[in-house]
Amino acid sequence: MSQAERRHVELVKESGCACCGAAGFVHAHEIEQGLWWTSIGLCPDCHTGPNGIHGDKTLWRIHKLNEIKALNETLRRVYG
């Protein structure tokens, strides 16, 4: 991971959850492994929880999100 990618991921982790809006430090979920520029800020529940993106995706359906929409929200929060 380059220095620029590391800085981007740190900003993503500070941006809050793109799915539910939870504030604070979050995980950086990669849409595709190793593509750090496409990291999405997600709280633990929306990321690795049973209803999160790596679970049954219930929270994502409730918020009517997919990874591209969540990436857009993350980038808006980081750079907007």
Rank of each mutant, 00 (worst) to 15 (best):
W37P: 00
I68V: 13
F25T: 09
C19E: 00
M1W: 11
L42V: 04
G24L: 04
R6Q: 15
A18L: 03
A70R: 02
V12K: 06
G52W: 02
G34I: 07
P50N: 11
T38Q: 14
G52Q: 04
S39T: 06
E10S: 12
A23N: 07
G80K: 08
K69E: 12
H47V: 01
H63L: 12
W60E: 05
E30G: 03
R7S: 12
I31P: 02
R76Q: 14
L42M: 08
Y79G: 04
A4C: 03
E73P: 00
S39G: 07
M1P: 12
K13F: 00
E5S: 15
G34W: 06
G41M: 04
K69A: 13
A22N: 05
S39Q: 02
S39L: 01
H63I: 06
K13T: 06
G16A: 03
R76K: 15
S39D: 02
E30K: 07
Q3A: 14
G34S: 07
C20M: 10
A22P: 00
G41V: 02
V9D: 07
G21Q: 03
L75T: 09
K13S: 02
E10H: 10
A23G: 09
E32L: 08
I40G: 01
A4F: 07
S39K: 03
V12P: 08
K69M: 10
C43E: 01
C43H: 03
G52M: 05
T38C: 10
H63K: 15
A23Y: 00
A28P: 08
A22C: 05
E5T: 13
A22F: 00
K69C: 01
R76E: 14
G49W: 05
E10N: 13
H29V: 03
E10G: 08
H54R: 15
E14D: 13
L35N: 12
S39C: 10
L11M: 13
A22W: 00
K57S: 13
R7H: 10
C19L: 12
A28V: 07
K57F: 08
N66Q: 01
G16Q: 04
R61S: 13
H54S: 09
H27V: 00
S2Y: 06
Q3F: 13
E67Y: 01
H8A: 09
C19W: 00
G24T: 02
E30R: 09
N66M: 00
H27S: 12
G16I: 02
C46R: 07
R76G: 08
I40H: 02
A18P: 03
H63M: 15
V78H: 04
I62E: 14
Q33E: 15
G16P: 05
G21D: 03
C20N: 09
T58Y: 14
I31Y: 02
H29Y: 07
L42W: 04
